[in-house]
């Protein structure tokens, strides 16, 4: 009997997860409610600094809460929201005992690819809802669209890839829910720094091509490196 190509297995797993998610709505529901409440809190707590201006080191007047700052808060929100829901696909398989059958029926790489794809899909769906709502409530501009979209997509990719591998690790430990955020967020802090650096470009008028390549490239390469390492190491996590 020939073995199945991994991408077909991954696609089947992705479809299965999407279907289960449509029925139970555990991941999207928890992420959505978390993100919306956090969104509301941010918008309310930032009302007080809405019109405030401050003088920077060069003596220029600047709004205290500018677009880059709004972008930074948006990503902080998205990170925490992602970490409320993205552990579910792995933790659910381990806790309900279905992971044993998956281990027999699928190769480890296919499981990783399927779960990564599912997490990226859920994350993208959440971002499609949250980002416009956030922009409406806080008045954040997109800045230069040619940079805004790569940054959002690169951010989604990096966030999803970190969450996937950390969820796989946490699912194997006891009290995985508590561990998930604790071991994932320190990795993401670095990613957020890169992201905020890149976000400045969106709103800075004087972005040079070199700085664009450097910052957006750094952002994307972070996700690519995490995915490459995770794919290489996933069978150590997945197999007993």
């Amino acid at each position: 009997m020939n073995s199945m190509p991994w991408h077909k297995q991954a696609a089947a797993l992705w479809k299965k997860d999407i279907r289960a998610e449509m029925r139970t709505r555990v991941a999207t529901g928890s992420m959505g409610v978390f993100a919306l409440s956090a969104l509301l809190l941010i918008a309310l707590s930032m009302l007080s600094v809405k019109g405030v201006e401050y003088r920077d080191a060069l003596g220029r007047l600047k709004p205290a809460w500018d677009d880059a700052g709004k972008m930074a808060l948006l990503w902080t929100l998205l990170c925490f929201a992602a970490f409320t829901g993205l552990a579910h696909p792995f933790v659910h398989e381990e806790e309900s005992g279905t992971s044993l059958a998956l281990r027999l029926y699928m190769s480890a790489e296919a499981v990783y690819a399927g779960k990564l794809l599912f997490n990226l899909t859920t994350l993208a769906a959440m971002m499609l809802v949250i980002t416009p709502a956030y922009m409406l409530l806080t008045g954040m501009n997109t800045g230069r669209l040619i940079l805004f979209f790569p940054i959002m997509i690169g951010g989604c990719f990096g966030l999803g890839s970190v969450a996937t591998v950390v969820a796989a690790l946490a699912a194997k430990a006891k009290s995985s829910g508590a561990l998930f955020g604790a071991i994932g967020l320190p990795i993401l802090v670095v990613f957020l720094i890169l992201l905020m650096q890149a976000a400045h470009l969106c709103y800075a008028g004087n972005a040079t091509p070199i700085s664009i390549v450097k910052d957006v490239g750094g952002l994307v390469s972070f996700g690519v490196m995490i995915v490459a390492l995770s794919a290489m190491l996933f069978h150590f996590i997945w197999d007993d």
Binding site: S3, R19, A20, S107
Partner: peptide, 25 residues
């Protein structure tokens, strides 16, 4: 490897199927 997995069928008390799906699914 994968070939061996493809030729193995396994029933075990620790194994569970997806409770959110029907039997046919």
């Amino acid at each position: 490897g994968a070939q061996r997995k493809m030729t193995t069928g396994y029933v075990s008390p620790e194994m569970a199927l997806y409770s959110e799906f029907t039997g046919a699914e």
